[in-house]
Write a protein that binds this DNA or RNA. Structure first.
Lengths: 211, 211
DNA sequence: TAGATTGTTAATCGATTAACAATC
DNA sequence: TAGATTGTTAATCGATTAACAATC
């Protein structure tokens, strides 16, 4: 068992969501079947996925909810804060800075950068906005390794180059651009049009089936 | 060959991105190898994916770019406008309303709904905002089948119920909530924390490998 | 023509699911 | 104890990749 399969990894945050709701309800243990019912998955898949995070359940009892939450969160790296910067303080960038959920999921946006001079020196949801030329300095001073890109497609590659030069190791790319990076830099694409394509085709298929 | 595999479907918008950039450069044909190089995929995978959209290439020549774009766009359903409403005109909802890319991808947000009375009657990027109680009426009058949800987790299920009652057939859910719907309604989750989990773990793996 | 590229058929790979012994 | 639930080992399924004949 080497590294976790991507589909399993993607399910982990969903497990957390419902585990936390169980926790709020005062439950202390949970079985794979309980989770599977909530998410419309098979219990065996839950057990397999859980195994990747290293947690061990008890036959007949199930898993300890607190332990399970802790185990998943630390597997994902959500048990501690990771600093990030955000480039492109437009409407999407602003929305992301305003999303409190990131804080409980290990992501702390320390600073934002934008070309719009009218934004420089301002705070957006407590996050200071700087001019682009400050980027390298801030990244290095704050020892940041992660960047969120919310710039237009036309700017994505040049921003990426600047980020890589400054020492950024991971990029969360919200632009639909296909950015090129050296192989030691991780890029996670977050292209909304992928989701839109899936939704459209599935609706089409539903229409032409049992309905 | 029944319906397209999900991974293939998710790659189609990426093909479109780079096909359009080829088109702008004045190219007329493209081979699977050309596309594969841009996206870091294998040519055979491109050919398999293309086959699902129904397009036929010419040996030795490749695919006609205009035809390919048309073929993919109409396969996804991006060749015509689909009306949608948006529920939750907060910062994320606002960002989505302001995203022009949706218009070229078949999605037209006709109206937004929010509980905040101060927003009622206003326009956000040309989209009118209505009180929640108007929802059913607008959905039925405009014959809308698709809804975008950008409300807090706590409101997601009740909003979903209202949407389903009004006759909505597809939901693009940007809240991390696990909403329950009847089986003839399609839900596409767009939970950002999934992407965050993938990014964090991949960065971790990169750190503990060749670096 | 010869070489490049497609589309098809078969092989491989990886994820999901099933079966079941272990156990609290 | 008996029944429920885990974790492991094996079987199945589906997507990716390889091989190659067809062809412009």
């Amino acid at each position: 068992m080497n590294s976790i399969p991507l589909p399993s990894l993607r399910r982990l945050p969903r497990y957390l969501n419902i585990l936390e709701s169980f926790q709020i309800k005062g439950k202390h243990t949970v079985s794979a079947t309980d989770i599977a019912e909530e998410l419309d998955l098979k219990p065996i898949q839950i057990r397999k996925d859980m195994a990747f995070t290293g947690i061990v359940g008890k036959p007949k009892v199930g898993y300890d909810i607190n332990e399970l939450i802790k185990s998943i969160r630390s597997f994902i790296g959500w048990h501690e804060n990771t600093s990030a910067i955000l480039v492109g303080a437009g409407s999407l960038g602003t929305a992301l800075m305003g999303y409190e959920g990131f804080l409980t999921r290990g992501l702390r946006i320390e600073a934002a950068f934008d070309t719009d001079t009218s934004k420089h020196g301002t705070l957006i949801y407590d996050t200071p906005v700087y001019p682009m030329r400050e980027l390298s300095k801030v990244v290095q001073r704050k020892n940041v390794h992660l960047a969120v890109i919310t710039v237009p497609v036309s700017a994505a590659q040049s921003v990426t180059d600047t980020l890589v030069e400054s020492g950024i190791k991971g990029i969360w790319n919200f632009s639909p651009a296909e950015i090129q990076v050296p192989e030691q830099v991780v890029v996670k694409r977050e292209d909304l049009s992928e989701g839109l394509a899936v939704l459209f085709v599935q609706m089409q298929e539903m229409k032409h089936s049992g309905k």
